[in-house]
């Protein structure tokens, strides 16, 4: 078997292998790593990034990009917090307000992108700033605290010993995987990202598909925003800054190609877990966060290099 073939195989499954190897190495070197409490901590830490990464995976598969994730986290978080004070509204109100804000924001992204034909990079760069401004306006620039216990349960509570964010993560993963693999919409996402003119010539409404992915991305960011607000028990207008980069990194490490048309939710989940596991282990090993960033950057590039080697023809 020739070398290029092995590399190709490795490119396909490399991320899973790398993840397994890193976990194995950590389990052997740091006794605290492979304990249930630590794993649950990782799961909780990963959950928000993974949710955003699922959203942006949809977008990247269609050949787009969304830089406004972090701002949507803040807008949704602040909006939810405004309705989450004790003894005011029932729990569903802040939830729907936060999710609605995300859906609206995402749909707005989709609308501008499909109507204006301006590249998504530029549009979402703009809405990233708009969103941050909106979050500051809504909260009058101050953190919104004093939230109800039921609201705080979402990010901080446990069900049978499992942190609630992990449960949300698992549910979101299942739903997103189903959307991508089993629905017509998912098929169309791959088609639009794989060859947009051909997708259009096949009778697919490219506009609808794009509206859907940006809206879904907004919705998932809002779930992330609500989780974060609930976990830190405050609606922070500055929350989520830079989250978009970690989410995009998770998708890319997981094998989603920025040129569109490929990517899986499982890959993205592993990508997010890999980022989580590495920063957790570097914490355990007392490596400062400065070095952690260097390591993370190397991993992102390494993953893409592996991926492109896997794609090389013969």
């Amino acid at each position: 078997m020739d070398r290029s073939f092995q590399l190709k195989r490795f490119g396909q499954y490399g991320i899973f292998l790398a993840f397994a190897l890193i976990c194995l190495a950590l389990a052997l070197s740091t006794p605290r790593f492979f304990t249930l409490p630590n794993l649950l901590i990782i799961g909780t830490q990963v959950s928000i990034n993974a949710l955003l990464a699922f959203g942006v995976t949809f977008v990247i598969i269609t050949g787009g990009i969304d830089l406004s994730l972090g701002s949507m986290v803040a807008v949704a978080g602040v909006t939810a917090a405004m309705f989450a004070h004790p003894d005011t509204y029932p729990l569903l109100v802040p939830l729907f307000a936060g999710l609605g804000a995300g859906v609206f924001f995402g749909a707005f992204n989709g609308f501008v992108i499909t109507k204006s034909k301006v590249p998504p990079f530029i549009v979402t760069l703009g809405t990233m700033t708009i969103g941050r401004g909106l979050a500051l306006i809504l909260s009058k620039g101050r953190p919104i605290s004093n939230l109800s216990d039921s609201f705080n349960f979402i990010g901080g509570g446990n069900v049978f010993g499992v942190p609630f964010p992990i449960i949300i993560l698992i549910i979101a993963f299942i739903i997103c995987s189903i959307i991508l693999n089993k629905t017509v919409l998912g098929r169309y996402m791959y088609a639009v990202g794989g060859n947009e003119p051909a997708a259009r010539a096949s009778g697919i409404s490219v506009t609808n598909v794009k509206m859907w992915v940006y809206t879904l991305c907004g919705l998932l960011s809002a779930v992330g925003g609500i989780l974060l607000t609930s976990r830190i028990t405050t609606g922070q207008p500055n929350a989520g800054a830079g989250f978009e980069l970690d989410a995009i990194a998770a998708a890319i490490i997981g094998g989603t190609s920025t040129s569109g048309g490929t990517g899986t939710m499982t890959g993205t989940l592993i990508g997010a877990l890999l980022i989580g596991v590495i920063s957790n282990s570097l914490d355990l090993l007392n490596v400062t966060s400065y070095y952690q960033q260097v390591v993370m950057g190397i991993i992102i590039i390494g993953a893409v290099v592996l991926d492109s080697m896997g794609k090389k023809d013969r």
Partner: peptide, 9 residues
């Protein structure tokens, strides 16, 4: 290639 098929599918 441009309008006919989606190469990666």
């Amino acid at each position: 290639k441009g309008l006919g098929f989606i190469p990666g599918m």
